[in-house]
């Protein structure tokens, strides 16, 4: 297992991906909170149809955008392809009016509605643009960008689009811009892909496949994995088989106060099985990816607000694998 060369938060761009349902958005938000705590100016970008991150910070979606912080040090943006395209064309044509005229053209719109690939490209182009933005003093506007990327399968296609565009377009600004995006993605000091896994059979296997595919096909660096929602050890150390002991109790134990021992045992067994499943698959992920893992605890109620994000950020903070 190789140790990462850089601390996670030393990158400019963290692209968070993983199978659907692994908690990519919560992890993105928690990492943003952690970075902000350390004094970094962070921008976290979502590309889902609906943004969730402002709500996690207790802010409304309307408050999101490049010019507002949803939390001290944290800015949240949702990248919408047509809006990003309008912005891009505005920059190309030297004014929003021309861009709006082009976008307002019905024929152009039909062409774009049908054309695949440009949404991914323009979205990554927008990320590149955010990364390039500077303050008046010449320092980067954001120290760190965190991208909550699409689920695994589409996530890799997504990262591959700039390369494809460079191959498909022969000359001109589009090709040049796509190559800038490609360079950003492949710059191992600047950009890192951070897979989020669950310690369960299929997510574990998919994480291994993801890492293999990244190493084989995509030029983006990946040097550690986040394993989310890991169950804690449920029983005192001396009684690893508490459920079995509970099942042995006389049937009338705790009558009136507690469910019957069979039910107690079943609940305890459920916890033990979840824990064992997690432990088993932490191992498969470690073996399959040969990467260091940052584990985050299961929050039984889900990740709903900034307090929950703080608990995840604490777990990140406590993990020695956050640093290089």
């Amino acid at each position: 297992m190789s140790a990462p060369e850089h601390g996670l938060l030393e990158r400019r761009l963290i692209i968070i991906t993983g199978k659907g349902g692994t908690g990519k958005t919560s992890v993105s938000a928690a990492l943003a909170l952690l970075a902000a705590r350390r004094g970094l100016r962070v921008c976290v970008a979502e590309m889902a149809l609906e943004s969730r991150i402002p709500a996690l910070f207790g802010s409304s979606e309307a408050a999101a955008g490049e010019d507002h912080e949803i939390h001290p040090g944290v800015t949240a943006v949702r990248i919408e392809p047509y809006a990003a395209l309008a912005e891009y064309l505005g920059l190309q044509f030297g004014g929003r009016r021309v861009a709006e005229w082009v976008l307002g053209n019905q024929a152009f719109r039909q062409l774009m509605d049908a054309a695949p690939g440009w949404r991914e490209l323009i979205t990554l182009g927008k990320v590149w643009h955010l990364e390039q933005m500077e303050r008046a003093d010449g320092t980067p506007r954001w120290d760190l960008l965190i991208v909550d990327a699409p689920a695994t399968g589409h996530g890799l296609t997504f990262l591959d689009v700039p390369r494809v565009a460079v191959a498909a377009v022969r000359v001109g600004p589009l090709r040049r811009h796509a190559s800038w995006v490609e360079e950003m993605i492949e710059d191992k000091r600047r950009t890192i892909l951070l897979p989020v896994a669950l310690a369960e059979e299929l997510p574990a296997r998919e994480t291994t496949e993801l890492v293999e595919r990244v190493r084989r096909d995509v030029g983006v660096a990946v040097d550690r994995v986040v394993v989310n929602a890991v169950s804690p050890a449920p029983f005192p150390e001396q009684v690893p088989d508490l459920d079995v002991r509970l099942a042995r109790l006389p049937a009338d134990t705790g009558q009136g106060r507690l469910p019957p021992p069979a039910t107690l045992a079943a609940c305890a067994r459920h916890l033990r099985e979840r824990r064992e499943l997690n432990v088993r698959h932490l191992e498969t992920i470690a073996e399959g990816t040969s990467l260091p893992m940052i584990t985050l605890p299961l929050l039984p109620e889900g990740v709903l607000d900034v307090d929950d994000l703080a608990r995840l950020a604490d777990a990140f903070e406590a993990d020695p694998r956050l640093a290089a």
């Binding site: 449920p234 005192p236 001396q238 009684v239 006389p250 705790g254 609940c267 039984p300």
Partner: peptide
């Protein structure tokens, strides 16, 4: 109550209080 019942079955050396607490957490949590 639960700790007493566990001690009855498992013997005096069993960490019955800790086990009973964990069992209650498990049931309430589930």
């Amino acid at each position: 109550v639960l700790a007493a019942a566990l001690r009855e079955v498992e013997g005096q050396d069993f960490p019955a209080e800790d086990a009973a607490e964990a069992a209650l957490d498990a049931v309430a949590g589930y």
